[in-house]
Simulated assay, not measured.
Amino acid sequence: MTSAIAELLPALRTGTLITLKLTVLATAAALLMSVLAALLRRSRWKAVRVLAAAYVETFRGTSLLVQLFWLYYAFPLLLDIRLPVLTVAVLALGLNYGAYGSEVVRSALEAVPKGQTEAAIALNMSPFQRLRRIIGPQALAIALPSLGNLQIELLKGTSLVSLITLGELTYQGMLLRTYDMSRTTLIFGLILLLYFLIAQLLLLVVRLLERRFPAGRVGA
Results as ranks from 00 to 15, higher is better:
residue 79 L to D: 00
residue 43 S to L: 06
residue 71 L to G: 04
residue 110 E to D: 15
residue 52 A to G: 08
residue 80 D to T: 07
residue 43 S to H: 01
residue 118 E to L: 13
residue 64 L to Q: 03
residue 98 G to H: 06
residue 72 Y to E: 05
residue 35 V to Y: 08
residue 118 E to T: 08
residue 35 V to P: 08
residue 55 Y to M: 08
residue 95 L to M: 13
residue 104 V to E: 05
residue 101 G to K: 02
residue 84 P to T: 03
residue 70 W to M: 13
residue 65 L to P: 01
residue 44 R to W: 05
residue 45 W to E: 13
residue 99 A to D: 10
residue 94 G to N: 08
residue 92 A to D: 13
residue 32 L to Q: 00
residue 117 T to D: 03
residue 74 A to L: 15
residue 74 A to W: 08
residue 80 D to W: 06
residue 70 W to F: 15
residue 96 N to S: 12
residue 118 E to D: 13
residue 50 V to F: 15
residue 97 Y to G: 01
residue 98 G to C: 01
residue 37 A to Y: 09
residue 116 Q to R: 09
residue 83 L to E: 11
residue 31 L to Q: 04
residue 37 A to R: 05
residue 77 L to C: 00
residue 119 A to K: 09
residue 94 G to M: 08
residue 102 S to Y: 13
residue 71 L to K: 09
residue 90 V to R: 09
residue 66 V to L: 15
residue 104 V to L: 14
residue 116 Q to A: 10
residue 62 T to M: 12
residue 77 L to S: 03
residue 113 P to I: 06
residue 93 L to P: 07
residue 52 A to E: 01
residue 45 W to Y: 14
residue 48 V to Q: 03
residue 39 L to T: 10
residue 48 V to N: 05
residue 48 V to K: 00
residue 97 Y to Q: 09
residue 118 E to P: 06
residue 112 V to G: 06
residue 45 W to D: 09
residue 80 D to H: 14
residue 73 Y to C: 00
residue 84 P to S: 07
residue 31 L to S: 03
residue 42 R to V: 09
residue 89 A to C: 12
residue 68 L to K: 03
residue 78 L to D: 02
residue 31 L to I: 12
residue 117 T to P: 00
residue 70 W to V: 14
residue 120 A to F: 11
residue 56 V to M: 10
residue 112 V to A: 12
residue 32 L to W: 12
residue 64 L to P: 00
residue 101 G to A: 05
residue 30 A to T: 11
residue 116 Q to P: 02
residue 102 S to M: 12
residue 99 A to M: 10
residue 102 S to L: 14
residue 88 V to S: 10
residue 58 T to L: 14
residue 51 L to G: 15
residue 100 Y to P: 04
residue 83 L to M: 15
residue 32 L to H: 01
residue 59 F to K: 12
residue 60 R to T: 01
residue 63 S to L: 01
residue 107 S to A: 15
residue 119 A to E: 05
residue 94 G to Y: 04
residue 34 S to Q: 05
residue 119 A to D: 09
